[in-house]
């Protein structure tokens, strides 16, 4: 038995299984993609605009001042709406699981209403609120303490769009956060309670941090979605990216060219968000996996390496954390 270790047979060197089908599929897919891209590219090339060919117009407008200004507004809208959505969503989710029936019913009703009506309708509603409510005020009944402001001053078009998008988003975020809270094992709450922590502390220190792992991927998804949904602010005449390209397109007749310009920017922004989301997930995965998951770059590299190899079995991720156990 002792020399069984010494007599370890040499490592297996076998001819790997070939996968010709993968190469055929790659060629076919590439051919179809090339045909589609070429057709559209050529059509735009032959389109005559004020700047020459269609591509010249795209090149002219892609860094145009008005477009760049529109991008800034789009980003502002997205960030503000998501901030409102996330903060209100967390509050609504915690309210929803509250033992207080009044509080949980309010939350249920909010989600039912704001998830049940189109966001476009909600933006329009805020935008046109001044038609029925010229002034908005608060005061204390039976006293002369009264503060009011003209609705048009308070709810600018930008504000109407932010409110519409943010309040609607809160309803979706509430459900996402609630799913995250439910996903945390009940033993965690019990252990925290047994240490004397109250409901708020348990939520804030123990449950929510762990729920983040479940909350972040769909929230990233929502943010990416919001970046594009913010184009509905068009309805409130907010000059964000979509409205800007629309205005220029109407003036120059370079309709498809400007849609391409807008699409390029939407793609750039969503791509950046996708990468950001990835690193956020790694951050909150702390303590839940033995090793950190691979970065997109590491995965891409592996994909190149394994393209003609058999599908990789669940290969251990590179261990960054010291993983000596037992």
């Amino acid at each position: 038995m002792a020399d069984a270790v010494a007599q370890r047979p040499e490592a297996i060197k076998a001819v790997p299984v070939r996968h010709p089908g993968r190469w055929v599929a790659a060629v076919v897919v590439l051919a179809i993609a090339a045909a589609i891209v070429y057709t559209i590219a050529a059509a735009i090339q032959s389109d005559l605009t004020a700047y020459g060919s269609g591509w010249a117009a795209v090149g002219h407008y892609v860094f145009h001042r008005l477009i760049l200004q529109g991008i800034v507004v789009t980003l502002e809208l997205t960030i503000l709406a998501m901030v409102i959505g996330i903060i209100l969503g967390v509050i609504l989710a915690v309210m929803r699981i509250s033992p207080n029936p009044v509080v949980s019913t309010v939350s249920w009703f909010y989600v039912w209403f704001f998830r049940g009506t189109p966001v476009l309708v909600q933006i329009f509603f805020w935008f046109n609120l001044n038609l029925i409510l010229p002034h908005i005020g608060i005061g204390i009944p039976f006293t002369s303490i009264w503060w009011q402001v003209s609705t048009n001053t308070l709810i600018t078009p930008f504000m109407a769009a932010t409110l519409g998008l943010g309040l609607n988003e809160a309803a979706y975020m509430a459900e996402i956060v609630r799913a995250g809270i439910i996903s945390v094992e009940h033993g965690q709450t019990e252990a925290a309670q047994a240490l004397g922590m109250d409901r708020l502390l348990v939520m804030q220190r123990i449950v929510l941090p762990q729920a983040m792992r479940v909350i972040i991927p769909p929230t990233g998804n929502e943010t990416i979605s919001m970046l594009k949904t913010s184009s509905l602010a068009f309805a409130a005449s907010v000059t964000e990216l979509f409205t800007r390209q629309q205005q220029i397109a109407t003036a120059t007749y370079a309709v498809l060219e400007l849609l391409i310009v807008a699409s390029i920017w939407y793609l750039v922004m969503t791509s950046i968000l996708t990468v950001g989301q990835y690193y956020l997930e790694r951050r909150f995965g702390r303590g839940t996996q033995r090793g950190l998951p691979m970065t997109p770059f590491q995965r891409f590299r592996r994909m190149l390496v394994t393209f003609h190899a058999p599908p990789p079995a669940t290969q251990a991720a590179p261990a960054v954390l010291p993983s000596e156990h037992r």
């Binding site: 094992e185 047994a194 240490l195």
Partner: peptide
């Protein structure tokens, strides 16, 4: 909560906080 804080409890499944 105050009374619980004076009693220590150890669970079958440990229930350590995994993010700490």
């Amino acid at each position: 909560c105050r009374k619980r804080s004076e009693i220590g409890m150890v669970f079958q499944r440990f229930n350590l906080f995994p993010h700490m």
